[in-house]
Design a protein around this nucleic acid. Structure first.
Length: 554
DNA sequence: AGTAACGTCTGT
DNA sequence: ACAGACGTTACT
């Protein structure tokens, strides 16, 4: 195997490895995803050899054995203090040519070997990842593969056009995500990342349906040569250590872009001022601009984002995007999804969309601050992604009118994740902290309500309208002395629950905080019994005028 | 030596 | 385009 005979740093591309620190790395396997089920330890055949979907590292690092192609040494950023010095001594891997160097080693090359004043384009999303000055300088990005510098004798690398397209998308993504100290003009088109349609977002890529959201293809390690059949031969890869940048450069291998990750915007310092064409800065600081932007809607913000690079960056501020609405979009494109992730909304409406399970999983894994999620009218197939998603901040979940949701499906969502160890913390379901749950139109029975009492005990608003199986016993359950919801419920929607009879009405007086009870379209309820409930004086519910018992269809 | 899993290739 | 397979790499 030729790649193993190459010394590290001699052009052998390095496989990335887990950071072991990110949230994904430190969690346990879900035991339930496609790849877990394949694992021998979970009773599978062990053929796929992939990491648990929930354990996909979000910051894959270079292996410890990686060294600089130029000096042959490892990363040495720990030996210095300043940011700039650290950068010069860190190992950077180019997403295009895959070469790993110390940026400092590049700078100290004789000037005749340097690439003018070209700067690398740093990809802040992935550690030690950039587009090296040479690739940047030569425009070796989306359009052309990196030609062998010394016109090596090797065969041209076949680059099928789909891969080329992916490369272009990848390049765009890198430009959009880059957080380079603005010395380079190589990313001038990155300002155009917001599109003209207002609420729809188009910018960097998200994997969408692709490849389970696997990590970005770094260069691989040349193992493609181990297969018979067609393969991309890499000429000149055994070249001398110091051949770069003069020697035959490894031809580019378009990375397999469908696997790259898009993460929340890094906490990189934002420019605080707006540079003007005249060279000076606009007197208003960023904070003032943000206060202006806060008065704009999504459409206007997207327009602002096309004004200039600085505005574009400022407008990603998540304070400007507390809620995002993608409802009723038949298909969600990768740019839309990554646009959401970059804006980190607190509330996201995906109702009646064709969001897929993978897309939802991808999103939720990257929206850890999400407080409100609306998925009404989506398919259970997709929504089941909630079953293995981390939802630490979730307060509102809307699952109305999802087809095929019965007790067993809701159970999946309510029960604690399978990897929660009994002694770890107390076993907590995902919806423990949820205050508002909308379950209208689902085929739930009292079995689900019992689970709700146990695993969603903090509900203040519950929508069970048009749940055909909800009847008097359900109200008994909800208002029983043992029910935690008896104390917490403020809003309860039971509209269209035909099985409810007058007998259940007095039970609602057990809920001291109940302020709004929707009993519209409950055929068996008599106006008289409802009137008696409504007239119930203190300490019963519905005391204030704005607190209502809704009885009739308005 | 053993385990995990990365990145690419193949068949559909 | 996708899912599955698997050689190989990274690390213990």
């Amino acid at each position: 195997m030729s790649s193993s005979s190459r010394g590290p740093g001699a052009g052998a591309r390095r496989r990335r490895t887990r950071c072991r620190r990110c949230r994904a790395c430190v969690r346990t396997e879900c035991g339930d995803c496609h790849f877990c089920r394949d694992m021998k330890k979970f009773g599978g055949p062990g053929r796929m050899k992939q990491s648990c979907l929930l354990r996909q590292c979000t910051a894959p690092v270079l292996p410890h054995t990686a060294v600089c192609l130029l000096c042959g040494e490892a990363g040495k950023e720990d030996t210095v203090e300043g940011e700039e010095e650290k950068f010069g001594l860190s190992l950077m891997e180019c997403t295009i040519c895959n070469e790993i160097v110390h940026p400092g080693c590049l700078k100290s090359l004789p000037s005749c070997l340097q690439m003018g004043k070209a700067e690398g384009v740093i990809n802040a999303e992935i550690p030690n990842c950039w587009e090296c000055p040479r690739c940047t300088q030569e425009g070796r990005t989306s359009k052309k593969p990196k030609p062998p510098l010394a016109s090596a004798e090797g065969p041209a690398v076949p680059s099928p056009s789909p891969q080329r397209e992916k490369l272009e998308r990848f390049k765009r993504m890198c430009q959009l995500l880059e957080r380079v100290p603005d010395t380079s003009s190589s990313s001038s088109d990155s300002d155009s990342d917001s599109d003209s349609s207002g609420t729809s977002l188009s910018e960097d890529e998200a994997p969408g349906e692709a490849r389970n959201g696997r990590r970005p293809a770094r260069g691989s390690s040349g193992e493609k040569e181990n297969r018979g059949g067609r393969r991309a031969v890499r000429p000149g890869t055994g070249g001398p250590l110091l051949s770069w940048p003069l020697g035959p450069a490894p031809p580019p291998r378009p990375p397999q872009l469908e696997r790259h990750v898009v993460r929340p915007p890094p906490r990189s310092p934002e420019p605080d001022t707006l540079p003007l064409a005249a060279g000076s800065d606009h007197p208003l600081p960023r904070a003032a601009w943000l206060r202006v932007f806060q008065h704009l809607g999504p459409r206007e913000l997207c327009i602002c984002m096309r004004v200039c690079r600085t505005w574009s960056r400022w407008c990603y501020d998540k304070r400007l995007w507390p809620r995002m609405d993608l409802s009723r979009r038949k298909s969600l494109t990768p740019p839309m999804l990554s646009g959401v992730v970059r804006r980190q909304p607190r509330a996201l409406d995906l109702s009646w969309t064709g969001v897929s399970k993978k897309q939802l999983m991808w999103l939720l894994n990257r929206l850890q601050g999400l407080q409100e999620l609306v998925l009404s009218g989506c398919s259970w197939l997709s929504v089941s992604a909630l079953g293995s998603a981390p939802l630490p901040a979730l307060r509102l979940l809307d699952l109305r009118w999802i087809e095929d949701v019965k007790d067993s499906q809701l159970r999946e969502l309510l029960l604690p994740p399978p990897d929660t160890k009994p002694g770890q913390t107390e076993s907590r379901g995902r919806l423990q902290g949820v205050a508002e749950l909308r379950l209208a139109g689902l085929e739930l029975t009292d079995a689900s309500l019992r689970l709700l009492l146990r695993h969603a005990p903090q509900l203040s608003a519950l929508d069970l309208s048009h749940c055909a199986h909800v009847g008097d016993p359900s109200v008994h359950l909800l208002t029983a002395p043992t029910s935690p919801l008896r104390e917490t419920l403020v809003h309860l929607n039971l509209a269209g629950c035909h099985r409810l009879t007058d007998h259940c009405l007095p039970l609602f007086r057990r809920c001291p905080r109940l302020r709004r009870l929707d009993l519209r379209s409950c055929r068996q309820l008599s106006p008289e019994a409802c009137a008696r409930l409504a007239a119930a004086g203190p300490p019963g519910p519905f005391r204030c005028p704005e607190e209502k018992l809704l009885l009739k269809d308005s």
